[in-house]
């Protein structure tokens, strides 16, 4: 038996949500960029992978609908997780993913720490950047999902909105998609992979647990709270075997490689398309 050196952080269901999100996000990014860049050979190559310009549209629409269902399922999941007996109070505990005043304080203190003007903030279970990433997906899926449905089913949509609303929907869809991709392929990947604390990879979302030792450094308030409440015993799990760790690493770096490929290809080719 391997020693129990890690704290459980994500349930298998949460990891499954993340895995589905990851796979469909990369698919949406590739098929969407393939269509946007179809005038360049880079875009044509990308479209070829999925079977051409039109197939890209079909895939993009159905994976998009899958994402919307994933999102709705996640919202149902959230409601099932709320402890309704302690209702409004339970939303403001340190275990809650909702933004709280402490996050603003943490953010300012964290930035002062960057320039050596303060102690590192004592983060609890969810750092403000993690909360931001989580809610950014909410915003992104709502905006992309709604504008995407309008464009995909334009004939039905124009019964509800005027046709010139599609011009606006198309631009909102584009800009939001670019924002989401650039954020995930730079900031999110940097924080999860390149930061010294996580290098070469933060396996939390794949393995489901984080190293106790490292977490004591980064999220001391959480670790102390677990110890004070006597929950630490239950939360500890052993590390995954070397084979699974290697698999996580390989999978993670494949995702990073695809993301960086899309990011660089998109930037290099952006002057050559009709926007």
């Amino acid at each position: 038996m391997r020693p129990k050196t890690r704290i459980r952080r994500f349930t298998p269901l949460q990891r499954l949500f993340h895995l589905c999100l990851l796979l469909s996000f990369l698919t949406q990014g590739s098929t969407g960029l393939a269509r946007l860049y179809i005038e360049t050979s880079w875009g044509q190559g990308l479209a070829w992978v999925f079977g051409g310009y039109e197939t890209c549209r079909t895939i993009h629409i159905y994976v998009g609908i899958f994402l919307i269902f994933l999102f709705l399922t996640h919202i149902l999941y959230l409601f099932s997780k709320i402890k309704w007996k302690e209702f409004p109070r339970c939303l403001f505990t340190p275990d809650s993913i909702l933004l709280q005043p402490k996050d603003i304080k943490d953010l300012i203190q964290h930035m002062l720490w960057f320039i050596g003007r303060a102690e590192a903030p004592r983060f609890d279970r969810w750092g403000y950047w993690e909360k931001f990433d989580y809610w950014a997906v909410f915003w992104g899926i709502s905006v992309l999902g709604i504008t995407g449905l309008l464009l995909a089913y334009s004939l039905i949509a124009t019964r509800i909105i005027p046709g010139w609303g599609l011009n606006i929907a198309l631009w909102v869809h584009r800009i939001e998609a670019i924002l989401a991709m650039v954020h995930v392929f730079t900031i999110h990947f940097f924080i999860a992979h390149l930061r010294r604390h996580n290098f070469p990879m933060d396996r939390a979302m794949f393995e489901g647990s984080v190293s106790l030792h490292h977490t004591r450094n980064e999220k001391p308030a959480w670790v102390e709270r677990l110890e004070q409440e006597g929950k630490m015993e239950n939360a500890l799990v052993p590390e995954a075997g070397a084979g699974r760790r290697a698999l996580f690493l390989l999978f993670g770096y494949c995702a990073v490689a695809i993301g960086v490929f899309l990011l660089i290809g998109g930037m290099v080719n952006s002057p050559y398309i009709t926007w």
């Binding site: 930035m111 984080v210 490292h214």
Partner: peptide
């Protein structure tokens, strides 16, 4: 924010825990 954070973390002194691979 991410860039400064990345640079700042290079200057943390962290002890290695025994019996564990790097996270």
């Amino acid at each position: 924010h991410a860039a400064l954070w990345g640079v700042r973390e290079l200057f943390i002194k962290e002890e290695k825990a025994e019996g564990e691979t790097k996270d």
